[in-house]
Design a binder for these strands. Structure first.
Lengths: 142, 142
DNA sequence: TTTTTGTGTTTACGCTTGTAAACTATAAGA
DNA sequence: TCTTATAGTTTACAAGCGTAAACACAAAAA
């Protein structure tokens, strides 16, 4: 089983999805206004991105009066998880741990986030291997 | 201060860098053989990617006899850190913690990795905020 | 020395992306 | 009903990317 043929969302499109996810539903003028402010994009740019997201199936639209209302059809957290997993999947597995440590050092986490992470780590510890092999070159250990 | 004008390495190029990083130095035929095996790429494809990486400055080459030897000019760990940081920087900050937890649940970490992460988390805990705000829409909390 | 072959360089080509203008249709206001 | 503003659709266009063939050159083999 695999997670339904992952829709590819580009960086610019991702920004649009963020506001759609956060607001739950949006009109193009709303997004245009926000993106003008946040990204400096022209209205035309937002229209293009909305159109592409509809075509990709990441958004759906419903006609209400003159304008459409757009709704996300994919969920935010799974999308984030997938994007992150894809990135880490392309990296040397031996270095994933260090990379995570470096990242945790840089981001802001809430008390709850930290507690949750600690819980997961505690559960993993007992069965963790002594070391993780490099998988960059077939049949080669770093 | 900012980390030297980040060289952009594409997905396919990244695969080439991985073998260069792991082996320290490589010849094109070496890379070609590995990529034929690992990715199913033709020799020509590898040549193109090596050329682009040279042009981008991610690799440098030294002529030895008939062929060139290629060396990475950027380091692996900082490159990984930067790629990861960039991805997370484009995501809702409020969801970074959950995303990290989901990720940790999926990857393989060594005992040492886990210990290191636990140490960093323990150090962060005392000063961690109660919650992290959503930054997807200017002046909006989720 | 001549031929061959392994390397690097150029050219190719369709697709995606970022960024946007132009065009069109229709709801809303006059 | 006629006009206008506004939202959606088409077209644009250069740069980057994945994927590779064609070409040129020099080193190695004959």
């Amino acid at each position: 089983m695999e997670a339904q043929t992952a829709i590819e969302i580009s960086d610019a499109e991702w920004e649009v999805m963020r506001v759609a996810w956060t607001l739950g539903q949006v009109t193009s003028s709303q997004v245009a206004e926000i993106m003008a402010d946040k990204m400096g994009w022209k209205t035309a740019t937002v229209k293009t991105l909305l159109g592409r997201l509809i075509k990709k199936g990441a958004l759906r639209s419903e006609k209400h009066g003159r304008a459409f209302t757009y709704y996300p059809t994919v969920e935010e957290q799974p999308s984030m998880d997938m994007a992150v997993k894809t990135l880490f999947g392309h990296m040397c597995q031996m270095r994933v741990g260090q990379t995570l440590t470096d990242l945790v050092n840089q981001v802001t986490l809430s008390q709850a986030d930290i507690a949750q992470l600690q819980a997961v780590l505690a559960k993993k510890a007992p069965t963790a291997p002594a070391m993780v092999d490099c998988d960059c070159v077939p049949g080669e250990r770093c």
